[in-house]
Design a protein around this nucleic acid. Structure first.
Lengths: 361, 361
DNA sequence: CTCCTCACCGGAAACGTTTCCGGAGTTATT
DNA sequence: AATAACTCCGGAAACGTTTCCGGTGAGGAG
């Protein structure tokens, strides 16, 4: 009873004694078909376990029901490796999946086979994806610029790209940074330093901006030597913190513009024989899983990561449904989550609270 | 100069003054074409920024150059959320990308639109994927069984599925568990408990098996009350550890069958007013990023996660190239990584070493 | 009884490729 | 000088759909 070839619409038509046109009509829920015919065709289709060919459908309809996802492989660190993007991906997949779309992950490694196949724009056209989501890319990247001109609906996460058919969703990075600095100030700190993310990225730049803005608003003088440039990953946080500790007048509080870097900073502080938060208070950014789990648990600015993905998906769906839908330029709110790394003293009560937070999630 | 329609092979043929057949031959590097013609076609193709349509090619060639990836959305926890799978995905994408394949992420949410679209087997046929990689699934799942019968080359990660065209790659979970227990015993512990992963999964079951086997080998009596069933995630580690600490004779060492659970266990221990490793020694499994970053850093059994992905990709490529290639049944070695959570005392020297490990990675 | 409308259906073109088959020149072989 | 063997190329079928356009038969209006 196993068929060797997978069933085609022609086979299905033959078996139900109607034309392929009619079969197509019942499969696509057109009105112009009698109830009896419809029932018969559906029955045979079920028996055959028939599935239409996406390729054929794409070819004739000029749309694929597939969304391309590009995660730029950062220098050395595949972005896929950063927990942040992973969570965004979860939200994205969920929303787009519910909308009937599948996700095509563009491999960033150039296959080399055939004629030059690399460029994202080419790959997008090649697969005829209906839309694109790009994450962690530099908007100035020529690759990205090509994508923008391509008239394929696109939404970027964490990068401010705008075009006729492309928008972005992003967290309120500047506001988040201000929250972090204000919190540190309210904890009594005056010497507040920062370890930044990559300044070439929007979040990296904005968090630094917010840091400076809040410092000014609070009347705390800005010092160049309190700014350490990092790259969002653990090691750079570690190195940045070391540099800060080596200063003649080291800071008593540090805002690390990413949780991974905050973790690195904690490592540096403790290796220096000091303690978090007693000697150095720390606030991170992102609230990745790690933040609540580490010791001391990390005060941080929570981004709604799956929300970013879901919002991006949502916006994309809107743009696909109505051609004239405006591309999104959405900024999602963030939230200060106070944990141990910024508390004056780690008390019994603090621990209890921290616990509730995690297990309740 | 912008074309409204994307260029087709027909257009390309017209512009180069040859037939589509010839263009196709040029593009696919056939020998049967004169150097001058070849050059001309290539030139025009470059000008047009021509890209062949994947849909058309798939249709006629009956292959898509796409690999389907299914990540079963576990009960409550999307697997994509577990760092483990993320890293496997990195390796997979890398290897398969280099082989010229793109990855299609199957959305697990049933789109509902059209006629029943859910089943993975249907989706696989629908997109005509050339191969499949499945992760974190139950081999007994009827969905998976359907996939096996479908004659599409398949390789599973972390699940022992075998079929005519399907194999698996997995870590040596049993051996890893034995390593963990032996290490704990060598640290002087006698009362060694375990918090298991989901026993319905291969790794969950195997790690428990290894635990028991090594206990026996070492002549340490096995106790039922030293076995707490978890589910690989933080909370279950936390709960399991609490239960163990409530025992009349609590263990002095615990093997947590996953790093996330180990982190939860640390939390429970400290909340209980005890310390890791002084009161309770801990060994985890996986060596996810978290393990090296947390405080105390986690002794664990390292799996080669990207290696799993790469091996899976490699095997799949082999099966795609030669139909008669045997499906893999590969087991990758694991490795004990000693960090603070199992050290008798956290010394200056230990910290130094831990540091090297992380920054050197 | 004829004509119109309407419900239902089939034929066929189109989507963009690959590949089989054969044909026209050109060069080598007898 | 005829034929064989290459080299290079074009026509056309095929892949599995969707959709336009038109056709048939039944029933209602004139």
């Amino acid at each position: 009873m196993r068929r060797l070839q997978i069933a085609t619409i022609r086979e299905l038509a033959r078996l139900s004694g109607v034309s392929v046109a009619t079969v197509s009509r019942v499969l696509n829920d057109y009105a112009d078909v009698s109830p009896t015919t419809r029932a018969r065709v559906l029955e045979v289709a079920r028996e055959l376990d028939y599935t239409p060919s996406a390729a054929a459908r794409t070819l004739v309809m000029q749309r694929s029901q597939v969304i391309g996802v590009v995660l730029q492989t950062g220098e050395g660190h595949p972005d896929l490796q950063h927990p942040f993007f992973q969570e965004v991906l979860v939200g994205l997949k969920h929303r787009l999946g519910a909308g009937g779309y599948d996700l095509l992950l563009f491999a960033t490694e150039n296959p080399g086979n055939g004629f030059s196949e690399h460029s994202f724009a080419r790959r997008a056209r090649h697969h005829r994806v209906d839309g694109l989501v790009v994450m962690g890319v530099d908007p100035a990247d020529p690759e990205v610029q090509k994508l923008l001109r391509s008239s394929i609906p696109l939404v970027a996460v964490d990068a401010e790209v705008v075009g006729r058919r492309s928008g972005y969703v992003i967290s309120d990075n500047q506001g988040g940074a201000r929250l972090a600095v204000r919190h540190l100030r309210e904890c009594g700190h005056e010497r507040i330093a920062i370890v930044t993310g990559m300044l070439s990225t929007r979040p990296g730049a904005d968090r630094l901006l917010g840091y400076r803005a809040e410092l000014e608003a609070l009347g705390v003088p800005y010092r160049d030597d309190y700014v350490q440039e990092g790259d969002f990953y653990f090691d750079s946080g570690y190195r940045g913190m070391r540099a800060l500790l080596a200063l003649p007048e080291p800071p008593t509080a540090v805002f690390a513009a990413g949780d991974l870097m905050a973790a690195g900073a904690v490592r540096a502080v403790e290796e220096h024989g000091l303690s978090v938060p007693d000697d150095v208070a720390l606030v991170g950014f992102d609230d990745i899983q790690l933040a609540a789990m580490m010791q001391p648990s990390l005060t941080t600015i929570r981004q709604d990561k799956t929300g970013l993905g879901a919002t991006a998906g949502e916006a994309l769906l809107r743009m696909l449904e109505q051609v004239d839908a405006a591309p999104p330029t959405t900024s999602l709110p963030v939230e200060l989550v106070v944990r141990e790394s910024s508390r004056v003293r780690s008390s019994r009560r603090a621990r209890k609270q921290r616990d509730l937070e995690v297990t309740g999630a």
